[in-house]
Design a binder for these strands. Structure first.
Lengths: 226, 226
DNA sequence: GGCCGCCTACCCCGAAAGAGGTGTTAGCGC
DNA sequence: GCGCTAACACCTCTTTCGGGGTAGGCGGCC
């Protein structure tokens, strides 16, 4: 099917930062056996472009507007289970990386990584290998993932807490009682080793369980300002 | 390489992400009147490289390891008050941008900006203009900066709150009474328009008033478990 | 001298949070 | 089927938060 003209690897880049895309484009241009076939700026676009372009390898950021990277990976893999996706993230202890790998990503790289490693990884992934993770990252994942693993429900509760909602309001918004929200909060704090809800949120942020952008922040209806 | 001997703008790029540096490098390479003369990955290196390379324009990220971008700007301007520095940030409502401008930065740009704007800004700044800010940003700054401006003491309190300390503990650690801490928290929440301490912390984080790295996180004495 | 903002500190008090429990359901191992 | 665990749900209890005030000392600014 995607029999490339002369064995060149067709790469789709998904990232919301134009400059970073340029960086990746420049890197790909310097490699004779790679070519950039498309760029997407959010998850939805990534899914669509994958369908039309059928690239050999996808480089995807996890932090995306409109549709989360993990979600995009899931959908792309649903389209084509052989899709080869390399995940790029900024933070070291990012738990989403693990979710991305579960969702079918072939490898996981940090953005502040050397070009060589990225290039090597692209070739390795194209060759069919999975997870040629350069050690350091594997460890950093392992070190963090052991004990967090918040349930989806807990993450939801915590996201709302980060937005400054009270347990009662969270319960109202999620359709459960205030007491239940409290129970979730207890479990969250125990898992994260946090002292209170505020600490739980900052801990989750620093571990990549939550992202500032995904918080229901700046919701106009409840602006305190008044 | 640097084969543009005359009338070319010498640019120093300061960012901790190699890929983003590559993106900037590619962008500069596409402009005949610009050349990349050096790259720094942290604030200290930026100050040193500025001293030795004397670039015409510096492109600097605010989020840097080892030395903060604002600090680096201050030191560079101390070396040479004519230094032309363009600040790059990720977030829209970043208060550090204002501090950077106060510290002597000539302009302020968002990373997810079009290349054209960046190139235009570089030329404008090189020509001696200051703050050719593309409207949107100026507004986003103005909209946010009016009312935050937390006092140093308040920022301290908020940092401890982000670490999960109770008002009593914060007071103990800062050498003031719990009542005073509460007074500060009240003022903080009023200024930030936050609903509770958790919201205050996330709001401050998203505006760049606080940084996750600077939180007294992971302090061993009071660790819950793990 | 006034005015204002910062830092400090205190009062009251209702409404949350967080620390104890209990129970239900679903899934997994055997 | 029988334990076991984990997610989810609900109920008390005490502590803490956060909103409403008030107020003195201190510094800058008009």
């Amino acid at each position: 099917m995607t029999n490339a003209p002369h064995a060149s690897i067709a790469v789709l880049v998904v990232d919301d930062h134009p400059l970073l895309r340029d960086g990746l484009a420049a890197m790909l241009a310097s490699q004779p056996d790679m070519r950039l076939v498309g760029e997407a700026t959010d998850g939805e676009q990534a899914v669509k472009l994958f369908a039309s372009l059928r690239p050999d390898v996808v480089l995807m950021d996890l932090q995306l507007p409109r549709m989360d990277g993990v979600e995009a990976i899931t959908r792309i893999r649903a389209q084509d289970p052989r899709a080869r996706i390399i995940v790029l993230t900024t933070y070291t202890g990012d738990v989403r990386a693990v979710r991305a790998l579960h969702a079918g990503a072939a490898a996981y790289l940090l953005k502040d990584m050397l070009r060589r490693e990225l290039i090597d990884t692209i070739r390795a992934v194209y060759a069919g290998r999975r997870l040629p993770v350069p050690g350091v990252i594997a460890e950093s994942i392992a070190a963090h993932v052991v004990d967090d693993a918040l349930s989806p429900r807990e993450i939801d509760v915590l996201r709302h807490a980060g937005a400054g909602l009270s347990n009662k309001l969270i319960g109202g918004r999620m359709g459960i009682s205030e007491q239940t929200v409290k129970a979730h909060m207890k479990s969250i704090m125990a898992k994260l080793g946090a002292r209170d809800r505020t600490h739980a949120v900052t801990t989750a942020l620093s571990r990549g369980i939550l992202a500032l952008e995904t918080l229901p922040l700046a919701d106009p209806g409840t602006r305190a300002r008044d």
